[in-house]
Amino acid sequence: MKTWLYLPFLLLGFLFVGCTKTTNEVVIPNQTISYDVASSAWEQVGSTFVVDFDIPPLNSNTNQSDGVIVSMARYNNSGVLSSTFEMLPEVYENQAYSVLHNNGRVSIEVKGVNGAPTLRPPGKVRFKVVIIPSERV
C-alpha cells in the first residue's frame, strides 16, 4: 500500500526532469570593411599623416552605441599580405597609429613618438574596419 502512495511522486519526478527550457537568440552579424592604402595615399597635415575612409554603415546611432575596431596588416616587398592583423592604436617602428571615427568616416593618423620625426608609412597597408552591433543599456 505504501508503494502506491509514492507512485504519484515518482511520476512527477520524471515529468519535471523531462522539461527543458528553450531560448531563442537573435544574432546580428558584424560588418567588416577592408581598405588597401598605398604609401602615396597618406596626406600630411602638420606633423601628422592621415588617411580617411568613407564608412556608410557608420551613422550617428552606430557611432554612439556600436563598437568600431580597426586593425592593419602590411604587404611585404613581394606584394603578399601578412596574415597577422594588428589592432589599432599601435606603435610600429617608432610611429604611433591612432583611429578616429565619426558619422560615415574613419580616420587613421600616424605620428612619431618620443620626439621621433613623423614618417610617411612605407609600402602598402590593409586596414580592416569591423562594426560590432551592441545594445545600449
Rank of each mutant, 00 (worst) to 15 (best):
Trp42Gln: 04
Gly18Val: 08
Leu81Trp: 10
Val80Asp: 11
Ser71Ala: 09
His101Pro: 01
Pro29His: 08
Arg136Gly: 06
Gly46Cys: 08
Val70Thr: 04
Pro122Lys: 15
Met1Leu: 14
Ile108Thr: 03
Lys124Gly: 02
Ala38Leu: 06
Leu88Val: 06
Glu109Tyr: 15
Val68Lys: 01
Leu7Gln: 06
Ile69Val: 13
Ile55Glu: 00
Leu119Cys: 04
Thr22Cys: 02
Arg126Met: 10
Ser39Glu: 15
Tyr6Phe: 15
Ile69Phe: 10
Cys19Ile: 14
Thr62Ser: 12
Ile69His: 03
Gln44His: 08
Phe16Asp: 01
Thr23His: 07
Val129Gln: 05
Gly46Thr: 04
Ala116Ile: 00
Leu100Ala: 09
Val110Ala: 03
Ser83Pro: 02
Ser47Gly: 15
Phe14Trp: 13
Val106Tyr: 00
Val91Ile: 15
Ala73Asp: 02
Gly115His: 09
Ile55Phe: 03
Pro117Trp: 09
Val137Asp: 07
Arg120Phe: 09
Pro122Gln: 15
Gln95Gly: 04
Val51Ser: 00
Trp42Met: 05
Asp52Thr: 11
Glu25Pro: 00
His101Asn: 08
Val26Leu: 14
Asn30Arg: 14
Phe16Pro: 00
Asn30Met: 11
Ala41Val: 02
Asn30Asp: 14
Leu81Tyr: 10
Glu43Ser: 13
Gly18Tyr: 12
Asn63Val: 09
Pro89Asn: 05
Glu109Trp: 06
Gly104Ser: 07
Gln44Trp: 07
Gly13Val: 08
Glu25Asp: 12
Glu135Cys: 04
Leu5Ile: 15
Lys2Asn: 07
Arg136Phe: 13
Ser82Gly: 12
Thr23Cys: 05
Ile69Cys: 03
Lys21Phe: 09
Ser34Glu: 14
Ser65Ala: 11
Leu11His: 04
Cys19Phe: 15
Gln64Pro: 01
Leu10Trp: 12
Val106Ala: 03
Glu135Leu: 14
Val130Pro: 00
Glu93Gly: 04
Phe49Glu: 02
Arg136Tyr: 13
Asp52Ile: 05
Tyr6Asn: 09
Pro121Arg: 03
Phe16Trp: 12
Asn77Cys: 08
Asn61Cys: 04
Pro89Ile: 09
Val99Ile: 10
Trp42Ser: 05
Arg74Thr: 10
Pro121Gly: 04
Glu135Arg: 06
Lys128His: 03
Ser60Leu: 11
Gly123Lys: 10
Arg105Glu: 10
Arg74Asp: 07
Thr3Arg: 11
Ser39Val: 08
Leu11Gln: 09
Gly46Ile: 06
Ala96Thr: 01
Val110His: 07
Val17Gln: 13
Glu43Val: 15
Gly115Ile: 05
Met87Tyr: 07
Tyr35Ala: 04
Leu15Ala: 11
Asn103Trp: 06
Pro117Gln: 11
Asn24Ile: 11
Glu135Pro: 02
Thr22Val: 11
Ser47Cys: 05
Ala116Gly: 01
Phe49Pro: 02
Thr48Asp: 09
Leu15Gln: 08
Lys111Gly: 03
Val106Asp: 00
Ala96Ser: 11
Phe14Leu: 13
Met1Phe: 13
Asn63Ala: 10
Glu25Arg: 10
Glu43Asp: 14
Asp36Thr: 07
Gly123Ala: 11
Ala41Pro: 03
Ala73Val: 12
Ala38Pro: 00
Asn30Gly: 14
Asn76Cys: 13
Gly115Ser: 11
Ile131Leu: 14
Asn102Pro: 01
Gln95Glu: 05
Val50Arg: 07
